[in-house]
Amino acid sequence: MQRPNPVQRASSDQPWQTRVAWGLGSLVGFLFFWEVLALLIQHRHFPTPTTVFAAMWREAETGALIYHISKTLFRVAVAFVVAMLIGSAIGIVMGRNGRVDQAFDSWLVLFLNLPALVVIILCYVWFGRTELAAIIAVAVNKIPNVAVTVREGARALSRDLAEMAHMYRFGAWKTLRHVTLPQLAPFFLASARTGLSLVWKIVLVVELLGRSDGVGFQLGTYFQMFDVSMILAYALAFIIVVQLIEFGILQPIAARVNRWRR
């Protein structure tokens, strides 16, 4: 039997300092390559990283950057919570009830394949270019993804644990809290992380088409001016915020949820 090489460890087994060092090193290398390439090309539509970060700093000093990012994050948070609640409820019901699953599976497939742009346009036509329409458009695009993931988790629930809870008369609330939700937690987390990456992108399109503020609106404005420096400044600032949420919130939650697997 071949012994595993201790040098070739999975990245998840490495110390976080090592992972951070590798990540920062690759990022610095990319920025250096970008800087050199931009200096060689010398075109206003391909600015250097220093030019982009200078533009980002100017927007932050005026307060515009913080304002528009906060408006986008508000829409993301509201749409995300609504979609998670509705999608999780649908997924649990479909996963635990075969007849409901058979009746509405085709509906789920339909909404999964419905283009996000169509949903956004229809919401603006039906509800007007309002904040409510924007949030509904984002939530509707995410709900099917959550429902599909949670449905698979509901199908995989242990019957033995359910029978044990019934035998010891846990009751509905205690069974939900101590038996059902812990088993569904990894599926909730998976749907949250994959769905959140989808929500970020859809919100920008929603703001581009029908809002007067937010990162998507700013991207559309500077696109009309062909100001690539400002486009990249807002894009990078938004990416930084998303990464901070990923590493500061989602990954610690994922580590806690999956702690029982170790």
Rank of each mutant, 00 (worst) to 15 (best):
L232N: 01
M1V: 12
E61G: 08
K71G: 10
L196V: 08
R159F: 02
F111Y: 03
A21L: 14
D160S: 13
P144V: 05
L108G: 01
L244F: 10
P49N: 05
A156C: 02
F33H: 05
V150A: 05
G210V: 08
L232A: 04
S191Q: 10
E59M: 13
I69M: 13
G91L: 01
R169Y: 03
L161H: 08
N258H: 06
Y234Q: 09
R259W: 05
A133I: 06
V20A: 15
R262F: 00
Q17W: 14
L189S: 08
V109P: 00
L244A: 14
S26Y: 09
A134V: 08
M167P: 00
V199D: 10
R262Y: 05
V241T: 13
A237N: 04
V100R: 00
R9Q: 14
P182V: 06
Q42S: 14
L236H: 05
A192M: 15
F74A: 09
S191L: 11
V82F: 08
R261I: 07
R155A: 09
A154H: 11
G23K: 03
I120R: 01
L236E: 00
R44E: 13
G87K: 01
G63V: 02
F188D: 03
F33I: 15
R211K: 09
Q183D: 03
L112N: 10
L27Q: 04
F46Y: 11
A147T: 06
Q2T: 14
A89D: 00
E59F: 12
A233V: 04
Y124E: 01
K142A: 14
V241R: 11
A134H: 07
S26N: 07
N145Y: 15
L198E: 12
K201P: 02
V228W: 02
W260N: 06
T18P: 01
L196G: 01
G23C: 02
L31A: 11
V146Q: 04
M56S: 14
Q14M: 14
L31H: 04
S229P: 03
N97P: 00
A103Y: 06
S158K: 07
E163P: 00
S11V: 15
V76P: 02
G214E: 05
G23Q: 03
N145A: 12
H43Y: 12
V93T: 06
K71E: 15
G214D: 04
F217A: 07
L184N: 01
R262G: 10
M164I: 12
S191E: 11
P252E: 05
E59D: 12
R129P: 00
W22N: 12
V140L: 15
F226P: 00
I135L: 10
R3F: 08
W34S: 09
Y168K: 00
F74P: 01
E131W: 07
T130S: 14
I136R: 05
V179C: 06
G195D: 10
L112H: 04
V36D: 02
A55C: 04
S158W: 04
L161T: 01
R262I: 07
F53G: 12
I92L: 14
F80D: 05
D213R: 13
W200H: 06
D13G: 01
L161A: 07
A165T: 11
D227S: 10
P15T: 08
F53V: 06
A89R: 07
